[in-house]
Amino acid sequence: MSAPAWVEKHKEKIEEIIARYPKKRSALMPLLHLAQEERGWIADEDIEAVAAILGETKSVVESVCSFYSLFYRRPMGKYVITVCGNITCGLSGAQELVDHLERRLGIKVGETTPDGLITLLVTGECIAACDGAPALQVNLEYCGNVTPERADEIIELIKKGEDPAAISDRFGIPPVKAV
């Protein structure tokens, strides 16, 4: 296996990341993030590349990688919609939201639309958006108070290729509630 493109492309960045820490091994997660930013998920060759950069075995890198829910080890859609499944969102209709998204996208949780555009996930972790329950993230950008109607609008924007950050700017949760 030859090294994935990001290793060459981000040569300096990799050096810079490693230099941030007193010990090299600390760069493991940042490098996995870097790999995932490039590919959208982490492939075997990314694991191998990180292992080679850090002088660790592939097993060690995989062991660490698999500990974290946000490192995806399988291909993901261009947009990953993650619905919060923890308590406040759950009590505020998260499952209805998930049902709606499944119907609307024609996929089940964990699946990706056939066009590779959207992957639908549910997280068990509270995403710290309880003030906007039910909430979801589009590529980790927050959207709050996601009623089925708002969900549809979000999907429309996604289909137009809108930037997740911009979507969040429209559907995010304001820091201060109007009285």
Partner: peptide, 8 residues
């Protein structure tokens, strides 16, 4: 009533 939120 409050339904479970399924994760895959």
């Amino acid at each position: 009533h409050a339904r479970e939120v399924r994760s895959a």
